[in-house]
């Protein structure tokens, strides 16, 4: 990925004192997190602790929620993406997203992959890009003969890989994944995991998951979130996955990963 613009050293994205509110409700408090480049970082924690909220604040998806407010900084390429002079479209162009529920466009498989390229002024060979992206998403062999079929003619796991292909077709720096395998069976889940490991060679991946084994299997770093009694989420512990799972520093983390939580 030498073609990418130079970045500030080791980290792909950094959160500084990140606070997110939905109206008057504070969803997360004081998150400080540095995500390393070309690594897989897993966000884990109990339901409602603000994982999705943090993830979505990394590419300003929260802008779509009228009540959402973000305080603090998210530094990307050394620049706070919440600065008033930053165009969220540019941020999202560089930080792609794969959602929990597969959401292909109601268009052909080909169009699903090609559309992002088209609107972003892609100048190369579209056919080639589509093939490349589908191959990278390990979907090519299954769909190469029916590129004109609707994205919705695929199985759930195939649809999710199509969404991944769609995300990587625009060559982002970071891919955010919000429980990408939660709707899939174990086999499809494993395929997605293999895919993430494969993609990590070129991309920085941040993945939200409820699946401890998954976090342990695929991620390099793990961030454990939990909630205060007033339901505000915060970052309890962050570190290399191997350390966090074997010798957690915090008692709360340990309880959670050993299944003794709440």
């Amino acid at each position: 990925m030498s073609a990418k613009p130079a970045t500030n050293g080791k980290y792909a994205i950094e959160a500084h004192n990140l606070n997110v509110f939905y109206g008057d409700f504070q969803a997360v408090r004081d998150v400080n997190l540095r995500i390393e480049k070309n690594k897989i970082t897993a966000l884990i924690g109990p339901s409602g602790c603000g994982k999705s909220t943090v993830l979505r604040s990394f590419n300003r998806m929260n802008d779509l929620i009228p009540t959402a407010r973000v305080h603090g900084q998210v530094r990307f390429h050394g620049k706070n993406i919440y600065d008033p002079d930053v165009d969220p479209v540019l941020v999202r162009r560089r930080i792609g997203m794969v959602f929990q529920k597969p959401n292909p466009f109601p268009k052909s498989i080909y169009e699903n992959v090609a559309w992002g390229a088209k609107i972003n002024g892609f100048k190369g060979d579209l056919d080639q890009l589509v093939e490349e992206s589908l191959r990278a998403a390990a979907l090519w062999d299954e769909v190469k003969n029916k590129l004109d079929a609707s994205g919705y003619s695929l199985s759930g796991g195939q649809q999710q890989r199509l969404c991944i292909a769609r995300a990587i077709a625009v060559k982002p720096d970071i891919i955010l994944m919000d429980e990408p395998a939660s709707a899939l069976d174990p086999i499809a889940t494993l395929r997605i995991e293999d895919l993430m490991i494969e993609l990590a060679k070129n991309y920085t991946i941040i993945v939200v998951t409820h699946n401890m084994q998954q976090a342990a299997r695929v991620s390099d770093y793990t961030a454990f979130f939990t909630v205060t009694p007033d339901r505000t989420g915060y970052l309890e512990e962050f570190g290399p996955t191997s350390e966090l799972f074997t010798m957690p520093k915090s008692k709360v983390t340990e309880d959670y990963i050993t299944g003794r939580f709440g």
Binding site: N59, M61, L64, V89, L90, R92, R93, R94, G96, M97, F99, K101, N103, P104, F105, P106, W115, G116, I119, N120, C163, R166, A167, V170
Partner: peptide, 14 residues
């Protein structure tokens, strides 16, 4: 569906 908008924005669409 909201999901289409999110997918679209997620690709850097205006």
């Amino acid at each position: 569906p909201r999901a289409f908008r999110e997918a679209s924005y997620g690709l850097g669409a205006t």
